[in-house]
Amino acid sequence: MLDAESRTLLRCFQDDPSLTTPELAARVGSTAARVARRLDKLREDGVLRGSTAIIDWPRLGFTVGVSLRITLDKTVSRAFDEFIQSARNVREVIEIQTFLGRVDVRLHLVAKDLPDYQRVYRDEILTLPHIADIEALMTVASVKSDENLPL
């Protein structure tokens, strides 16, 4: 799918997305114009969807991280869609993943401390529609958090 030059470009870009186009060009041994065209093509093809800021939540006072594994009531026809729509509105939820299997959804949320987590859990999470079962897994340590691909 990708040629060697595009893989090299993506590898450098994912290692440091703050690099300018001329800096990327120097790293991959190409011209800035050629790199700009390749980046535009990768964006156009949907391979490169953008770049994001990575926030260190504990530095902002959010010291508690919890993953909630949720099973939905599958007897309700729109349970999945209604749950996801409502979960998107919980500000403390920073990630929503869906699954096939016993667990339908995983929410990852952050809270300032345990009392704040309890508030979010009681006032926000437990009011979400169509929950049949819920399991909370408190984050002890994040050992690896990396979305870089081995290109």
Rank of each mutant, 00 (worst) to 15 (best):
F83G: 01
E135C: 06
S145A: 15
A136R: 06
T71D: 06
V66C: 07
E95D: 13
L149D: 12
D133A: 15
I54A: 14
F80D: 01
L128N: 05
S142E: 15
V120Y: 02
D81L: 05
D123M: 09
R49F: 06
S86W: 05
G65R: 01
T71M: 08
R88V: 05
R102S: 14
R69F: 07
R106G: 02
K74Q: 08
F99K: 02
G50Y: 06
R106S: 07
G46I: 08
Y121S: 12
S145I: 08
R102Q: 14
A132K: 15
S145R: 14
E82K: 04
I96W: 00
V93N: 01
H130N: 13
L72V: 08
I125M: 03
E147W: 10
V47C: 12
S77G: 08
V140R: 04
T52H: 13
S142N: 14
E95Q: 09
D116F: 06
V47D: 13
R106W: 02
L128I: 11
I94C: 00
L149M: 15
S142G: 10
E95Y: 04
D45L: 10
S77I: 10
I94H: 00
L48T: 09
S51F: 13
R122P: 01
E92R: 04
F83A: 00
D45E: 15
R91Y: 08
V103R: 02
V120C: 06
S67G: 12
L68T: 03
V90W: 03
L100V: 07
F83S: 00
D81Y: 03
D133L: 09
Y117I: 01
E82R: 06
V105H: 00
I131P: 02
Q85V: 04
S67K: 05
V47Y: 13
V120A: 06
T127N: 11
I134C: 03
V143C: 12
S51H: 14
K144H: 14
T71N: 07
D146K: 10
K112R: 15
L107F: 01
F99W: 07
D146H: 09
L137D: 09
H130T: 05
V140N: 05
Q85K: 09
R119P: 01
R59H: 09
D133E: 15
L149G: 10
E124D: 14
D146R: 10
